[in-house]
Design a protein around this nucleic acid. Sequence first.
RNA 1: GCCUCGGUAGUCUAGACCGGACAAGGAUAGCGGCCUUUCGAGCCGCGGACCCGGGUUCAAAUCCCGGCCGAGGCACCA
Length: 511
Amino acid sequence: MNSASKEELDALIAKLAPLRVPQKEKPKEKEERALPPLPGAQRGAVVTRFAPNPDAPLHLGNARALVLSAEYARLYEGKFILRFEDTDPHIKPPLPEAYEWIRQDITWLGYKWDVEWIQSQHLSNYYDTVRELIRRGLAYVCTCTAEHFQELRRKGEACPHRGQPISEALSLFEKMVSGGFDEGQAVVRMRTDMKHQNPALRDFPLMRVVNPDLHPHPSLKEKTWAFPLYNLSAAVDDHLLGVTHVLRGKEHMTNEQAQSYIYSGMGWKQPISVEHGRLMLEGIPLSKSQVRKALAGGLYNGWDDPRLGTLMALRRRGFSPRAIIDLMIEVGPKPNDAMISWDNLFAIDRKYLEPVSHRYFVVRDPIKLAVEGLGKKTVSIPLHPDHAEMGSRTVSVENGEVYVQKEDIEKGKLVRLMDLVTVRYLGDGKAKIEDIGPEQSVSEGIKRVQWVPSFALEVKVVTPEGIIQCLAEPSLANEPKDATVQMVRWGFARIDSLDEYGNPILYFAHH
RNA sequence: GCCUCGGUAGUCUAGACCGGACAAGGAUAGCGGCCUUUCGAGCCGCGGACCCGGGUUCAAAUCCCGGCCGAGGCACCA
């Protein structure tokens, strides 16, 4: 079969299912980029998981593993698990509010998880597995200092504890669990091969001690001294939860090998692992540690600061979750790293926002224009030029005065105030009407600009570059919170909140 | 120092496993035009890439070897 040509296959398919023959003349629909097949996946028998550490909200880099895991589960009609990996109260202590942040981030993207699993609530599973590994002679308790073991690992030499009897290992382990060792005094190691060509795999650690008085776990009432390390907890839970496919970053490549020692030691079937490359976002620090540091230093206003690449920030700016999903599907599960450009994300997002966003005039850096002879006038303008069914808004000029953007007018030049009138700017805030209709203004290439009446709404637009005080047409106040609007000739923004005077604050998304 | 994985236009991606209609397709960004009461959307056109060097082959983006560059691991983090 694998020697059959494409033509032969097509012919065969045509015979079997004549209705599904692709029609040549059919205009090529822009096919949505699809995910490549998942190795070893069977419909209905795929279980994936997304396993964040709840120490921060999700960012675009995390979204890759998340979207892939959720999409593959959906694609194969399988199950999707959300697992919180909160077993390090010392170096990466869980942030109690982050659990909910992450749930919200995932929900915002439109995904539901079939199972939620919090590792810190299931520590006894890891203890049981460690006991079994010790009983099988596959693990031991090492009381070397970290530095000393590092040295032995480098040289490929065993430490004195490696040969300890099983009974001793077992009792030392119970001593770890019951608080008989302080931090750094003992660790459980997998017995692998001290001469393994990859030093990372030489007797890697399974469990260590964290002092609960110094580093209490926020969601553990009882004092707990022994915590699993990543390779142990991931292997135990992936097995227990029946995970069939693990989609994660390629920084876990050696972990996959480490985990296979546990899987084979326990006689478990190892899930198929697909490791994707890392994502970078143009000009933005994504790494949690960097962001946290900058946050502490007051550089950002919070995890949802519009300058950040967190999903929270993108959500606040009014991005469509579909845009993030599309981008992740485009990047796919391949092992290449990718530098995501904002332009690319904006372009995808625009496709979703453009057809649904109401148009409004918003003026930055305003200058008052007294238009001679304009007087009192009310115009009605569609909320969307291509969708009359969306309705329209009205803008009233009271006394011939409007605001335009300083940069849009030039003394002596014509300018078309959109949907209102064409004027010539005379300088000194004065303008006079010219008898040039909309069609003619287009054909003559006259600049068309947005404007607002003199009794405009004062709005703040929060952009990645800073907060801009602007004037908006009064009907913008009719838009509900969370609505995404298009500020004509500027870009998309989301209605975020009201300021102390009841005026809207908008978060800018992009052009 | 040891180990691993990558390298197609500015950016993202298809093709690579299974060499041949690939003088490399799509998207985005750029430029030009059309259209249009937005600097939006749409349409048309233009320019832009297989990291380098060897090898195998009638034929290499695709296979092999070497190099260069990039990323990651060598945590009592995940």
